[in-house]
Amino acid sequence: MTITKDDVNKVATLARLALTGEEEELYTEQLARILAYIEKLGEVDTEGVEPATHTVLLENRLREDEVRPSLPREEALKNAPSADRGCFKVPKIIE
């Protein structure tokens, strides 16, 4: 699988990263190498093997439906660059 500069730019946009021209070049080359390395896995015969989504052979533990205390609002908003009337204040985004 090859990776192009367009692929890198698309991923960067989706991740809200602004790349310089130099970084574009670098990441295109580095990502291509990483993908080539991963592609080695394609050589393994996986016929009849169930796809794994996790590396541990455990199943999920469930929590009982019990309410526990939330954070005090001042705490919750403390790290926000801007807050107003109990809310996080953000620039308006029209999707």
């Binding site: 107003d84 109990g86 809310c87 996080f88 204040k89 953000v90 620039p91 308006k92």
Partner: peptide, 9 residues
């Protein structure tokens, strides 16, 4: 408030 959104989580 124009130009801002207020987020309630």
């Amino acid at each position: 408030d124009e130009g801002y959104s207020f987020v309630d989580l």
